[in-house]
Amino acid sequence: MTSPDQLAQYLFSGITIGSIYALIALGFTIIYNTTGIINFAQGEFVMLGGMCMVGCTHILRLPVPAGVLISVACVVVVGLLIERLSIRPAHGASVVTLIIITIGVSITLKALTAFITKDSFTYPPFPGPEHVRIFGASMPGQSLWIIGAACCIMVLLSLFFHFTIRGKAMRACAINREAAYIVGIDVETMSFLSFGLSALIGAVAGIMVTPTTQMAWYRGMDLGLKGFCAAILGGLGSSPGAVAGGLLLGLLETFGSFFVSGYKDAIAFALFLLVLFIRPRGITGRGR
């Protein structure tokens, strides 16, 4: 890491992957705030988003916008079905039980995808310049799409949470589910919605990240865990924290892999354990 060009290169690739982690972390945060559940199947939403898009581009040969819409819709339906079929029936279960259920969902989705295909896929980056030069760093055009999509989602989410009645109701659930229930908010519907919303964000992350890496049936768990690390880094339950945690994790991982290349995954988890032990409320101090 000698020249400033190289530094910029690392910085931008860190921000790119960090945006993906931030999106996944937001997915965790939304479900956790509304229902109190950590959805261990969050990473599978990302994987399914990528794989649906692969289906749309390779088999159906749809144009990009139609493919994105269809893939997101499919994953949202999966998310809603999960809530109805596995979370709702276990009403009143202890946290450990719910953790085990979402793990079950995660490996079932993984196995079902593996039934269909076990290959890794990718598709061409979305339309735009192939490479962009910023501050001497050369960024692939897809990075701009990723960062742009992440920014859009964050803006839309904060609008949703602050200016719509449903968004406000979900925030009320996050503050205190009991009180929300007492003032007449339908807590169950909010839980249903939170799974849909979280699946939507996960699907977008998966669709955007697939051209830069590859997508395969087993990628969900990695991505999901990184997203969870990001959520913890920022303080579980805090949306700005999730974004900050995602970006920080992306940067640390990119710069860290410069020094110890074989242990990229271990960096994220070592950091995660460190934060849990030293500052469990996250770097922003807003977590619960």
Partner: peptide
Amino acid sequence: EMACYGLILIMVMILSTR
């Protein structure tokens, strides 16, 4: 096998809470 583990976990946990 993996799908079975997943379904077993979901079913047993739901049944046990219900």
